[in-house]
Design a protein around this nucleic acid. Structure first.
Length: 114
DNA sequence: ATTCTGACGTGGG
DNA sequence: CCCCACGCCAGAA
């Protein structure tokens, strides 16, 4: 079956495909995986991403473009600095021109690469 | 098995 | 845009 990988692995697979200087939302990833209602689980998977350095968790924010998960990073402003380092402007933990840097896997990505 | 939590999302006001 | 309430589901205790 195509669903051999765990839910986390699927989330990681999409997160890794996030282009440089772009961000996406948990719901977008969840929707791409087919579990749109499990948007929270995407964040949960990111939690486990601590053991997966290949996953750019800093590029994943909530639908408002707010760095909700910055508190979970090593430092308090580590996540913001990482994004700013990619050319993204952040003000008060909120991404400026969010729609401009937003990367939707359902739109940008071809399809389910299982 | 049961209960709680959570890096969310959506809808109504 | 903000605020409030509910749903959702997978994992941890």
């Amino acid at each position: 079956m195509e669903n051999s990988a765990n839910f986390f692995d699927k989330v990681y697979a999409v997160a890794k495909q996030i282009p440089y200087g772009r961000v996406t939302s948990y719901g977008a990833i969840a929707k791409y995986l087919g579990t749109a209602r499990s948007a929270r689980m995407v964040g949960w998977a990111m939690n486990a991403s601590h053991n997966n350095p290949t996953v750019p968790a800093h590029r994943v924010v909530n639908r408002k473009g707010l760095l909700t998960g910055k508190h979970h990073f090593d430092g308090t402003n580590l996540m913001q600095q990482l994004l700013e380092s990619e050319g993204i402007t952040i003000k008060e933990n909120q991404i400026q021109k969010f729609s401009a840097v937003f990367w939707d896997p359902n739109t940008e990505l071809p399809a389910h690469s299982k």
